[in-house]
Design a protein around this nucleic acid. Structure first.
Lengths: 156, 156
DNA sequence: TATTGTTATACTCTATAACTATA
DNA sequence: TATAGTTATAGAGTATAACAATA
């Protein structure tokens, strides 16, 4: 049993499956799976700065900015000056964005049903907890030593 | 307890963390995380057709083909006519590809150590099993009903 | 007829680096 | 000096559809 190979591949397979079926179910709404994640993240914390938004959705500011341009164009999101920090902008859902998110949430309910349907109730919690531990262990800070070591190792 | 929101996001966060640190640790070798997955998949089943390769790495034939062009250019992979099916091509690692894969495996050992270091030995197996169940539940066949329903639902 | 792979094409996400304007 | 966001730029992965060759 080579769990060492299997865990990374299983993680990849599960995520890509989720991403793929999500993209498919959102396509007719003109929204991607990643854009859905952005909208859903906003709905849980209005008036985030772009950096905070990027951090919460495991992305980076540059990527988020590109996504926001698209969503802004579609009228789903609005950006305003931060009240106390003139450098920053706060991002929030528009009314249309909230309606769209509700539609997307409904459209993807069947995906979540499939996900939870194959798990015992207690398994779902376990899975979340284990995934969080893994994500945490693989933070850039935690693997920073890795970069240094890799660079000092003979390459090629 | 909104596990319903949390599980998809935790899955996303864990995978993207893994992908990011992998990309970082492979960058100096001129290889991406996804290319590493392709090479590693080949090492476990030489002479796969491109379709099989795509399926095993949770990708699609068109994407795999684009990746193979890059890897072929770098001399890490070779494609040959399938012995019994003239339409198909078999893909295999070259000698250079095998050497490179060994380097990449070593370079990424610390990532796996971090992953498994945060889990009890039994947790690792549990995690793999739960992820496989989820991935399986989210196969296109299993969510095919979803597509039909989504299309018949009023959009926008 | 169905399938393997190729080609053309396009778009999203990703990410680095240089820049500005503020803090 | 450090930080928030923008801009320019580049590349990778993703995916669809039309096509040729073969099964």
């Amino acid at each position: 049993m080579s769990t060492e190979r299997d865990l990374p591949m299983a993680l990849r397979a599960a995520y890509l499956s989720l991403h793929r079926v999500s993209d498919a179910s959102f396509a007719s709404y003109g929204v991607t799976a990643d854009q859905f994640v952005l909208l859903a993240t906003l709905s849980q914390g209005q008036a985030l700065t772009q950096r905070e938004l990027a951090s919460r959705m495991s992305s980076d500011p540059s990527t988020v900015r590109a996504m926001l341009v698209l969503l802004d164009h579609g009228g789903l999101v609005k950006r305003q000056s931060h009240p106390s920090d003139a450098r920053a902008k706060t991002v929030a859902l528009t009314a249309a964005g909230k309606r769209k998110l509700q539609q997307l949430w409904n459209a993807s309910q069947q995906i979540r049903d499939k996900m939870f349907g194959c798990l015992e109730p207690s398994d779902a919690g376990t899975l979340v907890e284990l995934l969080r531990r893994v994500a945490n262990a693989l933070t850039e800070e935690n693997v920073a030593s890795l970069v240094a070591l890799t660079n000092s190792t003979s390459v090629n």
